[in-house]
């Protein structure tokens, strides 16, 4: 399992649909692009937070808003980007971000796809959740990380789908 000081994995290509005003409607989408972490992370402070799935009740109602409502605080603390991860495809993540009210062409918060939870799996077994019995397949678990110049400075996973202070934005803001 990865811990503080370790290098954050960069060898999984993530995908996302950048927000543009032309596709402001939730059911409208443009094409996905690749998010290359080996280009994003060097020299930057990046916050990651992962959810079980787009449009699932606990993460939609409680988890993500703690980040989206505190974008200005993360910026003040010197965070360059926030990356939200789920195993949902980029179209679903894009719709979800807009449904959550995040519509900013700056794309400071990126809603990205972790394909088959590969990136999450590289962080450790407790960063993925097998929800096949519920018809949801293998998912990234709920977790949060602060990565400074490619190195992990904070990394906490929730037990199952719980949402506690471990992945709450305020815990990360305290550490920054």
């Amino acid at each position: 399992m990865s811990s503080s000081g370790d290098t954050f994995p960069t060898d999984v290509k993530l995908q996302y649909v950048p927000y543009t005003k032309e596709h402001a409607e939730i059911v409208s989408s443009s094409k996905p692009v690749t998010l290359n972490l080996s280009e994003l992370l060097p020299g930057k402070t990046v916050v990651f937070t992962s959810a079980i799935g787009a449009f699932t009740p606990p993460c939609t109602e409680n988890h993500l808003p703690t980040y989206l409502n505190n974008v200005s605080k993360f910026k003040k603390k010197g965070v360059d980007r926030i990356v939200v991860l789920t195993i949902n495809d980029p179209f679903v993540n894009s719709a979800w971000s807009k449904a959550l009210g995040y519509k900013d062409e700056e794309n400071y918060v990126i809603f990205a796809t972790d394909p088959k939870a590969e990136l999450s799996g590289k962080l450790g077994d407790n960063f993925v959740a097998d929800l096949s019995s519920e018809g949801l397949g293998t998912r990234s678990s709920r977790y949060a990380a602060i990565v400074d110049d490619g190195h992990i400075v904070y990394l906490e996973s929730e037990d199952g789908g719980a949402f506690t202070e471990r992945s709450h934005a305020s815990s990360l803001l305290e550490r920054l």
Binding site: T56, V92, A95, A99
Partner: peptide, 14 residues
């Protein structure tokens, strides 16, 4: 093949 949560959100919006 999307999950039921995603389909529900999409369906309601459409």
């Amino acid at each position: 093949a999307n999950d039921a949560f995603v389909l529900n959100a999409w369906g309601k919006l459409l």
